[in-house]
């Protein structure tokens, strides 16, 4: 088991009291594609960040089990974490505009990721970077490698981020809303690319998104989160016929091109769900 989370609780101390954001989440992930969906504030990103120990120090994290490939994350030192982050588990964030260094060329950033984890000369790293850019289907990798982040489009920027994450051959890829900042056409391309690379390399994928239909097309399993709880976990192919009223509510309130609705049903939240 690559990831094993049991009864994870994440809370924040604030001036006025204590806020529990994640309230007992259990997830398991092997070499498969797991999607986490839910509205904003449901705790999906926090769960992924807790797994990489990327939360601020004042965060209160409790769990019965929080393991990455048998390593206990709760007691892992920063040094140990550094051998996991990037090297064994890559993290792709939402907006490439804010994740890339604006004053370094794209190629040198990918090469840096390669060199940090694999060593070797600068020239070898740059060559490897160009190969990686080619692997994420960038047409003119040499030219793109020499350009700065502001000179490439959003979709291209996200490909660069993926190339950078692939450099150390990680076992797990965590993608936190990797396509929400992109156009519909580019969105599908990027997800297809992630899916291909993950299957080819036998990696695990944790895809976090608020877009249910998108996740159902690109994942094997889906966990639906609401207010810090996992409402239900089901096979992605069954998502559109989900039974839980929350999942059904989310699916129903989406407008549809093929099945027009006079009026969109509004989600009614039931306090019973949280019991």
């Amino acid at each position: 088991m690559l990831v094993d989370i049991q009864n994870l609780k994440i809370g924040f101390k604030s001036r006025t009291g204590f806020h529990q954001a994640v309230k007992g989440v259990s997830l398991k992930l092997g070499t498969e594609k797991l999607g986490i969906v839910g509205e904003s504030g449901s705790g999906k990103s926090l769960t992924a960040r807790a797994l990489m120990k990327l939360l601020p120090t004042q965060t209160v994290i409790e769990a019965d089990k929080l393991e990455f490939d048998g390593i206990d994350i709760r007691s892992a030192s920063e040094k140990q974490m550094r051998t996991i982050r990037g090297k064994r588990a890559g993290f792709i964030l939402q907006d490439p505009k804010y994740s890339l260094n604006p004053v370094k060329t794209v190629g040198s950033q990918v090469a840096e990721a390669w060199r940090t984890h694999k060593g070797g000369s600068k020239r070898a790293a740059l060559e490897a970077a160009i190969n990686l850019l080619e692997m994420v289907k960038i047409r003119d990798p040499k030219k793109v490698a020499a350009s700065y982040p502001h000179e490439v489009s959003g979709g291209m920027g996200q490909r660069v981020m993926i190339a950078m994450m692939l450099a150390p051959d990680p076992e797990l890829l965590i993608a936190d809303e990797p396509t929400s900042a992109l156009d519909a056409t580019v969105q599908a391309e990027i997800l297809r690319l992630i899916e291909e690379l993950v299957s080819e390399r036998g990696m695990g994928l944790l895809l976090i998104s608020h877009d249910l239909p998108l996740v159902s097309h690109f994942c094997d399993r889906v966990a639906v989160m609401y207010a810090g709880h996992v409402m239900e976990e089901l096979k992605a192919s069954d998502l559109l016929s989900a039974q839980h009223p929350y999942t059904r509510g989310l699916l129903n309130c989406m407008p549809s091109l093929m099945h027009p609705k006079e009026r969109l049903p509004v989600l009614t939240r039931d306090p019973e769900w949280l019991k």
């Binding site: 519909a184 599908a188 239909p213 097309h217 192919s237 559109l240 549809s256 091109l257 093929m258």
Partner: peptide
């Protein structure tokens, strides 16, 4: 046609 087919594809079950 491209935009339409993307939208339709997503609406259909996987």
């Amino acid at each position: 046609r491209e935009l339409r087919s993307l939208s339709v594809e997503l609406e259909e079950p996987a």
